[in-house]
Design a protein around this nucleic acid. Structure first.
Lengths: 365, 365
DNA sequence: CGGTTTTCTGTAACCGTTTACTAGGAGTGA
DNA sequence: TCACTCCTAGTAAACGGTTACAGAAAACCG
């Protein structure tokens, strides 16, 4: 037998309890429509009415319900971002750009970190789709897999159909599909430029170290590396390419192994600055000095590059701007107040520049 | 006179268009209630029915609308976190813990970064209140201001009234208010321990450098510092405390100034590892060596501590666990499946430990 | 002063789910 | 065969806003 309704609809006693727009309307003696209008300020309301509604809101501690608003309105005021690892400065700086641009557009930022689990990436995109995020930004390299591309492409279309959009950030765009935006940086160009810097110093045997083997980031950097060698007619020796991961520990061990194998090289192109840190540590442990014995360059230009001694010569990637640009691209379809002449290009590419510091010198003798 | 319905309800043409639960219900020939039940699996549904609903969902590419769900249901499956600066490893690691625990509980993580703007902090909390986040976590030191506490306390009550909760993470709890949880670490204890480490090595003139002056983090670390001195009856010299900021640049400049002022000290207690990095750089620029000329210790034990040469002796703070614990605390009121015997304490304090590396030696003669 | 605008405000129909209640039909025991 | 359980499934009322439409009041005009 059902007990009598336990709550006899007691008058609100808790002064902090959540209020609805109806509570405010009642207290101000107006309709909910009017309250909504003063909250949003998108429709004329008489000054006196406005004042009394505002007072009622203040007195009740009214807070709009973002979900009700998202349901009834059309935008959720949330952008989503999916990264591999939020503590990795590469992603952290991009996330910072995303977050700040999102806030600048009056939005909040839902951050998902996959911790390297590739399948989690798409699951997060699906979750962000459930959230009806105004834009979802997929950050970082991707393994270039046919099936995976198809899955991403499908998400892009779903998002688009829902009035949102998918932005690929720091990874190649979907060549076959116009549904996703892409905001890239000149990955191969930067790699070629810094390789050239090494070449200029006289190095010809350069060890390329690090980066997950099938990742687009790795393939692009390697492409630049090879191009630079080719341009100088320097033979490319596959034995001098050792890929696998981005970690410092991994890099430390691989450098040690390369050294102990007696591999012949006078410089190391570390796939990123973290990898370079591992290289430094290994060289130090073997009594080798940078740059006298071995020159080292990195990629990304994150803070560790300047902490390393000697300071690391590396490629600066406009990480934060990448994040901002991604948000702008993703939101380009939403804000109608956006400059109508500023047509969003499906793919924008930001430049990279090599930052010369102290880790490169001519090879010993 | 009401015009005829303007939209003749055209058949959906876009195969990727967002579908509602009604579309699925219609296609499967069941009611929306049934669809909801197969989606949530919280109510018995005949196998055949379930199968046909699942097929309909698949065929239509149905994705539930999280906002409608949040509105009708009671939980939003989102936790919010407010940090000062997402690229700062201190916050990044805490955020990582928060994010992973959130995901483990089936939730997404809304990350807000104030970029040091203190007033933004409360604005973000308000936004998270609008989002009806299941828990909101406020990370990092706070300036201990009466008025500010009152404001935080009010948010805590509002959140609580809404069935959510506020968790203070890495800052002191609201002494006068039971509405907020607090997850702290033994800030003063760690400071005292590492000061003692310096004292043991024979240092008596230790420069305490860095940290915003009024921040709770700073006051707690300074308290530990002074306690350790006191315990050894070493006089505390106010001239040896220079607070102001956490930045590397700031720290670099201040160290240079201290050196150039001829300030008499044999060791530096850097308010955190980033500050220590600045100290290293300044000492290096003045031709001083660590630890032979000056010993240095840091706080937090973030990756830069091991990158510095010599590796930095510092205090390890269980950052990630701090984040996890904060989420658990914040959610303790929600998940009824949680162990009912595990009563959440209003404030939990995690331990800190000093990690001895190579940056401390006895003072020169 | 009546007619026309203009300016505000209210009514009510959604937005897409969840869930308390209700009810039909299949088993079951007598 | 009938009454009584079980299962399942449907109905419809929320949830808390937004907004198209309509109506009332005020301002304007000749």
């Amino acid at each position: 037998m059902a007990a009598e309704p336990p709550r006899p609809r007691a008058k609100r006693r808790d002064p902090d309890a959540a209020r609805t727009i109806r509570d405010v309307a009642k207290r101000a003696g107006v309709s909910t429509a009017t309250v909504s209008r003063v909250v949003n300020g998108n429709y004329p309301v008489a000054a006196a009415t406005r004042a009394s509604v505002e007072r009622a809101m203040r007195e009740l501690g009214y807070v709009v319900n973002a979900h009700a608003r998202a349901l009834a309105g059309s935008t959720t005021r949330v952008v989503g971002i999916v990264v591999n690892e939020i503590v990795d400065p590469f992603f952290a700086y991009i996330a910072r750009g995303v977050q700040s641009e999102a806030v600048a557009s009056g939005r909040l930022c839902l951050v998902c970190s996959t911790q390297g689990d590739q399948s989690a990436e798409l699951r997060f995109v699906d979750l962000l789709l459930e959230q009806r995020a105004d834009a979802v930004i997929l950050v970082g390299g991707a393994v270039e897999d046919k099936e995976y591309f198809a899955a991403v492409s499908q998400r892009a279309r779903q998002l688009k159909a829902a009035g949102s959009s998918l932005v690929l950030c720091g990874r190649p765009g979907l060549s076959s599909d116009q549904s996703a935006y892409a905001v890239e940086y000149d990955n191969a160009g930067g790699a070629a430029a810094i390789t050239d810097h090494l070449l200029n110093a006289g190095h010809t045997r350069i060890l390329y170290l690090g980066g997950p083997t099938a990742l687009s980031t790795t393939t692009a950097r390697l492409r630049g590396f090879e191009q630079a060698l080719q341009a100088r007619k320097i033979p490319f020796d596959p034995a001098l390419v050792r890929t696998g991961a981005f970690g410092r520990q991994w890099s430390y061990e691989q450098t040690l192994r390369a050294l102990d194998d007696g591999l012949d090289f006078t410089a190391v192109f570390a796939a990123n600055d973290i990898v370079a840190a591992g290289v430094y540590a290994a060289l130090r442990d073997r009594g080798l000095s940078v740059p006298d014995d071995v020159s080292v360059v990195g990629y990304d230009d994150v803070p560790v590059a300047t902490e390393l001694q000697p300071a690391l010569t590396t490629v600066r990637v406009p990480l934060e701007e990448l994040g901002r640009a991604a948000v702008r691209a993703g939101l380009s379809g939403q804000d109608k107040n956006a400059d109508p002449f500023a047509h969003q290009q499906p793919v924008v590419t930001l430049g990279t520049v090599v930052v010369v510091r102290d880790s490169v010198a001519p090879p010993r003798s």
